[in-house]
Amino acid sequence: MNRAAVVFALLLAALVPLSLLAGRVWIDPATTPNAAIILMELRLPRAVLAIAVGAGLGAAGAAMQGYLRNPLADPGLFGIAPMAALGAVASFWFGALLPPAIAAWSLPAFALIGAGLAMALLALIAGRTSSGAGGGIALFTLAGLMIASLAGSLTALAITLAPNPFALSEIVLWLNGALTDRSWREVAIAAPLTGAGIVVLILASRSLDALTLGEDAARSLGIDPRRLLGLLIVGVGLTVGAGVAVAGIIGFVGLIVPHLVRPLTDRLPSSLIVPSALAGACLVLIADSSVRVLPLITELRLGIALSLIGAPFFLWLLLRMRSGSL
């Protein structure tokens, strides 16, 4: 465990109790009525979910930046998140047709199917582009962007064709990402998938280190580009797919977090994955606790809040890159 992992693990340990107490109602375990129920059934699952979603996005972001050798890369580039979102939007259309017992699960299930479809499509494209002749990564990324763009337009189409205003607002709200009113059910979906995804990304980490010197040098060090790409598709697919399935689209975490972690490490991709998972968990937990506390009429959506933080950060990053200090 490196220094960055220790720092963010300690931070997370300090944040969890704070986040449990924070909210529209500040909990004093001694005096607040029903404190145990609020904690166990509302706040704790929400906190665990924030940790799972944030950890998945953070680890996926670190892996993607390592794979593309680019500090501006983001897990969304593979098109997995937009496809998962498209799946979720489809559930607003088709979920009602299902028997009630299944319908309750239709949104996360459809989102995971969307993510799975994106992964299958990416694997198919990877089989055709990573022939070892070079240029594979750039070509593959373009393919991912096309999947993202296609999923985005289909989602927009679904929104414009929404059957009624209620469905429309439901879809739009959901797309903005939130952890409001989630329960242990969502934790049971997201936590195991995210955990598995992070393990897969850790398996890819030494290969990502080799890529620091470029594709040819990495192959000369014995790295199999197909295996690496396979691990990345599965790892990013599981973490991001599970995150979208339970929380909607939450942007910028995967982009920002590796930059917060990098200065505390030796900057090799393998040193970033676990600390980025922990830092991502911290970031989403802080953001989700903050939107609960903000004195607004309705709760600010988590996805919007993170984009409000993320966009200025991205700009600052661009300016720093221009000055050559990144």
Binding site: R69, L213, G214, S220, G222
Partner: peptide, 18 residues
């Protein structure tokens, strides 16, 4: 193969401040 043959590419752009 990698242990036996050390290959140095023509252009290497090191990706991070390693």
């Amino acid at each position: 193969r990698a242990k036996t043959l050390g290959y140095l590419p023509q252009h290497t752009e090191i990706a991070w401040d390693v």
